[in-house]
Structure formats: C-alpha cells, structure tokens
C-alpha cells in the first residue's frame, strides 16, 4: 500500500514540472567541495545548452571557492543521476537526458577542496 490510510488515498505530488513556470529543477553538486554544505537546487530551462550551464550558471553557485579558477574543464568528470556522463555542450539539458529533478555531479581531479580534505 503506498500509504497507510482508511481509504484509497491518492496525493497530488507537490513538485511536478508544470509547477515551475516552464523550468525544470536541476540539482548540482561539486564533489569534494563541502564548503558548499549541500548540492544546490536551481530552476533551469529544459532547453538550456549544457555549455550555458557551465558558463553562466555554475560560476554563480561556485566561483567563490579558491579551487574554482583552477578547474580544467576538459578533465572534469560528470555524473548524472548516478551514472558517468559525457555532456554534449551544445545540446539542451532535456535532450541529453537531464530531466526534471535530475542530479548533476561533477568531480574536478586534483582539486579536492581547501586543504585537500573536501572543504
């Protein structure tokens, strides 16, 4: 039973994509950089090219970290919804399988946070 109730109870999910005014939610986490205490949540257009995400969105979230300026973007390892991922920089998010409430994680080899201990 999907809920213990006195009758056949069906709920309305609170966070369906249509509630976000044309955007979808995307969660983003920079592995080993826990000065940012948790992954972040952003509403983004589903057709936003991955390149724009990297160029326009990520700096707003992460550029205050001293590792940021040293990232070699060609070496970054991406992961989407738990699977290794090779982004198509020109394709939109949704077109490459990054859906509503997907999790994008990235790892920056050699850059493991302040003091090298994931801060």
């Amino acid at each position: 039973m999907p809920v213990q109730a006195m009758y056949d109870y069906r709920a309305t999910p609170a966070d369906r994509q249509e509630n976000f005014h044309g955007n979808q939610l995307v969660y983003i986490g920079w592995d080993q950089h826990l000065m940012f205490c948790s992954p972040v949540c952003l509403p983004l257009p589903p057709d936003m090219p991955f390149r724009d995400l990297v160029r326009d969105v990520l700096p707003g979230a992460y550029a205050t970290h001293p590792d940021w300026a040293h990232i070699d973007w060609d070496a970054v390892e991406w992961n989407v919804d738990g699977e290794p991922f090779v982004p198509d920089m020109d394709a939109g998010l949704a077109d490459q399988g990054i859906g509503h409430k997907s999790v994008i994680r990235f790892r920056t080899p050699g850059l493991n946070g302040i003091g090298g201990v994931a801060t």
Partner: peptide, 30 residues
C-alpha cells in the same frame, strides 16, 4: 552560499550529510 540548497524529500534537511563511511562525500539516495 549564493544558491538555494537541495533538500531531502523526507526529513527536509538540506542534503548535507556525508556517506556514513566517507566524510568527504555527500550521501545521495533516490
């Protein structure tokens, strides 16, 4: 932090907890 956090659907705490055996890795479950 300039961006809003991702929250756990159940406890609603930001996803701040690390893997029980790895304090350098955020614990993700879905």
């Amino acid at each position: 932090n300039p961006t809003l956090p991702m929250l756990c659907q159940t406890c609603q705490v930001p996803m701040l907890f690390t893997e029980p055996d790895d304090p350098t890795q955020i614990c993700y479950r879905s």
